[in-house]
């Protein structure tokens, strides 16, 4: 299969990315190459192979429900582009 510009536009929009026409062309070409590369896997016969959920052969790894210290608020907010004393600030969220 080959990737269309419309496909890339949709993926970009879902990722909230704004691409120029030039970037869209470059991305479409590059993503198409990535997909074609991965598509080589389709040549393998995987009938009779169990689907795998994880590469590590492990399950049931849990942590106990015991409280640990959280980040100090200033540290948590340190990387925010915009903040006040208590919260992250973002452009107004419309609706809910």
């Amino acid at each position: 299969m080959s990737l269309s510009k419309a496909d890339v536009e949709k993926v970009a929009s879902l990722a909230r990315l704004k691409l120029t026409d030039e970037e869209l062309s470059t991305m479409t070409r590059q993503l198409d190459q990535v997909i074609q590369y991965v598509q080589q896997l389709e040549e393998l016969d995987t009938s009779g192979v169990q689907p795998m959920a994880h590469t590590a052969d492990l399950a049931n790894v849990f942590a106990d429900d015991l409280l640990r210290a959280s980040l100090p608020r200033d540290a948590a907010l340190a990387n925010a582009p915009k903040r006040d004393d208590e919260c992250y600030l973002v452009p107004p969220v419309l609706g809910d």
């Binding site: 790894v61 849990f62 942590a63 106990d64 640990r68 980040l71 608020r73 907010l77």
Partner: peptide, 25 residues
């Protein structure tokens, strides 16, 4: 108080790793 109960895992910092809460499960 707002933003006093967070850590790198729950605020999505790169490189942090989630581990399932036994009691929640």
């Amino acid at each position: 108080e707002p933003n006093t109960q967070t850590c790198p895992v729950c605020i999505g910092m790169p490189g942090s790793l989630p581990v399932m809460n036994r009691q929640a499960y």
